[in-house]
């Protein structure tokens, strides 16, 4: 099956600043594909070129086999877009916006159901300017899905949403995908990428660092487990540091924190059992995508919304 989106050697500069140096990626039908990277990495410019909003300086882009610039008319019918800041006239009411946008498409979704699904039903008669940041965000998601698109590109999907609204939105996105819609997600939320994405492209300084599954990325970063417990009786750290699978032991108050590879937990519990020490309040954490990201790019993701 041909890929839904194919980007080859995309290059885009603004004046003297290179926004996208060299980006290539392919998105397969039906997947949720994440584009992850710090602010200024070139994520938004990349998707804007895919949407046909910007003209690349070099490189080739095909979306559903269409050229985003030359075959715009056809593309806009099948591609749903949520811009980073979705914008509507201030005095336009929510229901009016949805009704208007649904008239743009040959086979629109039922906007009332979308409104319901995004928890905006009681805001139908509210003007755009009077909506909270999170409500505006949900409306822009609704507008991206209103045309029953085959592909949806969502830029900073849940920025500005509270945790509950964020989880509801993730549910909605998964339900949209289960209808066969391919989704491209631009994000700098690790939790979002880990929860939703089938594959991720890690972009840094205008280049793709790597493309993999969230788990694959974490594994590639070679960070294993972090084990934390309170020993039932005093113990010598050397019991653990001598283990080959353990890379480090630190203490925080009564707690012992052990870093190690994927076998560390096994080794640690065996040694403790042999010494009749019970590991109380035992917690094991897998390295997160966030840790992997720092490891792979040497940078932190911007934790806050723009």
């Amino acid at each position: 099956m041909p890929p839904v989106i194919e980007v080859r050697n995309l290059h885009k500069r603004y004046d003297d600043k290179i926004a996208v140096d060299d980006v290539s990626l392919t998105v397969q039908e039906g997947e949720i594909f994440g584009i992850l990277g710090p602010n200024g990495a070139g994520k938004t410019t990349t998707v804007e070129c895919i949407e046909g909003l910007r003209m690349p300086d070099r490189g080739e882009i095909k979306v559903l086999g269409l050229d985003p610039l030359r075959e715009r008319a056809e593309l806009t019918r099948r591609l749903g877009v949520q811009l980073q800041a979705g914008h509507l006239p201030e005095r336009l009411q929510v229901a009016e916006a949805l009704e208007l946008y649904s008239s743009f498409y040959p086979e629109p979704a039922d906007w009332r159901a979308l409104l319901e699904g995004l928890g905006l039903a009681d805001k139908a008669r509210t003007r755009y300017a009077k909506l909270s940041g999170g409500q505006k965000q949900r409306l822009s998601i609704a507008l991206a899905l209103i045309g029953s698109p085959r592909v949806a590109i969502l830029d900073e999907l849940t920025t500005g949403l509270d945790p509950q609204a964020r989880r509801d939105t993730w549910d909605l996105i998964e339900s949209v995908r289960s209808h066969g819609v391919t989704i491209v997600l631009v994000t700098h939320f690790m939790e979002e990428a880990e929860r939703l994405c089938d594959r991720l492209a890690l972009i840094d300084a205008g280049r793709v660092v790597m493309v993999d599954t969230p788990t694959g990325l974490t594994e590639r970063a070679r960070i294993g487990q972090r084990i934390q417990f309170r020993p039932s009786r005093p113990m010598d750290d050397r019991l653990l540091t001598s283990l080959p699978d353990v890379s480090g032991v630190t203490r925080r108050g009564e707690l012992v924190i052990v870093n190690g590879n994927d076998n560390a937990l096994n080794a640690v519990t065996t040694v403790l059992a042999r010494n009749q020490i019970v590991a109380e309040q035992l917690r094991v954490e897998q390295a997160s995508l966030e840790d992997a990201f720092v490891q792979l790019t040497g940078k932190r993701l911007d934790p806050g919304p723009r």
Binding site: E107, W111, R112, A113, L114, G117
Partner: peptide, 8 residues
């Protein structure tokens, strides 16, 4: 939550 694909 589901998204009906066609308009009523």
């Amino acid at each position: 939550m589901s998204v009906p694909r066609t308009a009523a």
